[in-house]
């Protein structure tokens, strides 16, 4: 969420509301999934259907190291969730193809409107992701200085480590 005001300025965040409030992270032991819940953020244009700024609630679900599903407040149907999913298909250690879906309640926008809305967001993310250094995910806690807002990324790194995932990750000893 912390990147919303700066990467998706005017859509998923505004610079005047940059604070990430405390949210919950839990490990679903039965299903071996990570969930970040109770995530709340001010968004000027949370979805194509938005009629103005609102506090959007998110749930982030990680069912697999290469998949994420976002549940977010549906602007046009209170009580329902809109879903956005990303399925990452690695092609090399530092390259992948991203497959995605968007499931939203929206009576006013065409499918093409929704595609444009979402592709705009994805391409804003792409330039940031592609320029991250190191290119492979750091798993050693000494490499990064996380803040409270990074609770879910820390849980993700722990989860990968606990499961012995090393593909596409950076170990401290490999950093020059």
């Amino acid at each position: 969420m912390a990147h919303f005001p700066f990467v998706h300025t005017g859509i998923l965040g505004v610079e005047d509301h940059a604070e990430v409030q405390r949210y919950d992270v839990s490990m679903n032991v039965d299903q071996d999934e990570i969930w970040a819940t109770n995530c709340k953020f001010f968004q000027p244009m949370a979805a194509a259907a938005s009629k103005g700024g609102t506090i959007t609630e998110y749930k982030y679900r990680l069912p697999h190291p290469h998949s994420v599903i976002l549940y977010k407040t549906c602007p046009s149907r209170p009580g329902e969730w809109d879903l956005i999913g990303l399925f990452i298909q690695p092609t090399e250690k530092d390259a992948c193809i991203v497959h995605s879906f968007v499931l939203v309640f929206d009576k006013n926008n065409s499918d093409t409107d929704l595609l444009h809305f979402q592709q705009n967001i994805f391409l804003q993310d792409r330039i940031i992701l592609e320029n991250q250094i190191p290119r492979q995910l750091p798993l050693d806690t000494r490499i990064e200085i996380p803040t409270r807002a990074d609770a879910s990324s820390i849980a993700f790194r722990r989860w990968l480590k606990a499961n012995g995932v090393t593909w596409s990750t950076t170990q401290a000893e490999n950093l020059e």
């Binding site: 093409t112 409107d113 595609l115 444009h116 592709q119």
Partner: peptide
């Protein structure tokens, strides 16, 4: 007028 350039090749 949005055109579904990708993936629709409209």
């Amino acid at each position: 007028e949005p055109v579904d350039f990708f993936p629709g090749r409209e």
